[in-house]
């Protein structure tokens, strides 16, 4: 296809719109970008070739096109097929979301939009701060939760003094107790020796009993043996009986003595 014929066709197509032209050209399997670039009289390159295509009709069209060309080119460049609301988010596009965006009801989003787009966002800058009632609430909270520096320092000092006091008391207690220490050690030693003595006594007693048992049974018997235990029980009973007998005798003696004295 010749360049001039393409050009005339382009001029005639302006009323249909450049998108239509684009589609048409692509359908005919023409390398659109290069041909357009070469043949377009309105781009910078073709300005030099003005003489080649001088025509009033064309220039009229050219003016019209020059106004919209940027937008058109942008539209053509947009091959992402993303919906507008998503395309706005792209970093190279970076446009404000539509004001009908559901998040626009929320304060944090408005603030964020102001931070991102500045005054262009059209957000009232006063909403950046908390409201008057919120500030008052905060002040009220702070009176309870946030004591002043002086108060904190004073409290810290008091705590420090208390800790020192506690440590001093502890030290004094330790000193007093250490003074008593030798006495306590002696007492402890006496207790221990007494304990040992009683233990030894018991052991001796047991030894004697075991020896008695050996004499009785004729062999060294285990203290856990049932025979030995029975022997011990018998012995105890005998002792009890003896005790009873002695008591009885004593009582009789006393009675006799009483009777004797009564007769007198």
């Amino acid at each position: 296809m010749r360049v001039s014929s393409l050009y005339t066709m382009a001029a005639s197509m302006t009323k249909l719109g450049i998108n239509h032209l684009y589609r048409l050209l692509s359908l005919r399997n023409i390398h659109v970008q290069s041909t357009l670039f070469v043949s377009w009289p309105f781009s910078e390159k073709t300005d030099k070739n003005e003489e080649e295509f001088p025509s009033e009709e064309v220039f009229e069209v050219a003016d019209e096109r020059n106004e919209v060309s940027e937008e058109m080119i942008d539209k053509m460049r947009n091959v992402s097929r993303l919906p507008d609301r998503l395309r706005r988010r792209l970093p190279h596009v970076n446009k404000m979301p539509d004001s009908n965006h559901p998040k626009f009801d929320q304060l944090w989003f408005k603030r964020k939009m102001y931070a991102k787009f500045g005054q262009e966002s059209g957000v009232d800058a006063r909403i950046m701060w908390p409201t008057r009632s919120e500030i008052r609430e905060r002040i009220e909270e702070d009176t309870i939760l946030e004591p002043s520096l002086q108060e904190r320092l004073q409290k810290a000092e008091e705590e420090k003094i208390q800790i020192e006091k506690y440590l001093n008391q502890r030290q004094e207690k330790i000193k007093a107790n250490m003074a008593k220490m030798p006495k306590w050690i002696e007492e402890y030693k006496a207790r221990e020796s007494k304990k040992l003595e009683t233990q030894k006594k018991q052991q001796d007693k047991k030894q004697i009993l075991l020896e008695q048992a050996r004499e009785y049974f004729g062999y060294a018997i285990d203290p856990r043996d049932q025979k030995f235990i029975r022997m011990l029980e018998e012995k105890e009973e005998e002792e009890k009986k003896l005790l009873k007998k002695k008591k009885k005798e004593k009582r009789l003696q006393l009675k006799e003595m009483y009777n004797v004295t009564g007769k007198q």
Binding site: R111, K112, Y114, A115, M128, W129
Partner: peptide, 8 residues
């Protein structure tokens, strides 16, 4: 990140 929040 903090300034992007738009809070004082």
């Amino acid at each position: 990140k903090f300034f992007a929040k738009g809070v004082p």
